[in-house]
Amino acid sequence: MNVIQVLFWILSAMALVSALMVLLSKNPVHSVLWLVAVFFAISGHYILLNAQFIAIVNLIVYAGAIMVLFLFVIMLMNLNKDTEPQKNIWMKLAGAISAGCLLMILVSLIKQAPELQAKTAMMNEGGIGLIANLGKALFNTYVVPFEISSILFLSAMVGAVVIGKKD
């Protein structure tokens, strides 16, 4: 077992435990924090697969922005144990069955997919996920759409100021 495998098992265990804790913790704020931990573990996996860019974006966008948004919503709605609606047993059963079906489909798909059986994940090789390569594609082939999207953000910014400014 080399370092990468050790890291893989640690990150996987971390991701699974955190994902379980998201479901099991009673306090919604704790759930969100555990979800952040899940994203960190998955980002670790991405780095092992030599995909720096996705790892960073996953952290910034999901763990950073979206989870903070989640926290804000939860705090605004003031959810705590007392207000949590008690779901009946049928709801739980229906949820378990539908989630179980999804799990079964995913597992059987992965087991049957011929593309996946021949290949293993690329470790320490393959440059497609590196930020340098992405930058080269972005500033050569896709430079026009890249620059044009700045117009989009500029107009969105002007709009935000017009709508949000107090007057």
Binding site: Y142, V144, P145, I148, S149, I151, L152, S155, A156, V158, G159, V162, I163
Partner: peptide, 20 residues
């Protein structure tokens, strides 16, 4: 890709102008 960007650049200012 540019169809998407063009339609968005055209529409986003309109959302603001509508609420002007």
């Amino acid at each position: 890709l540019l169809l998407f960007l063009g339609i968005e650049i055209m529409s986003i200012p309109l959302y603001i102008l509508t609420g002007g």
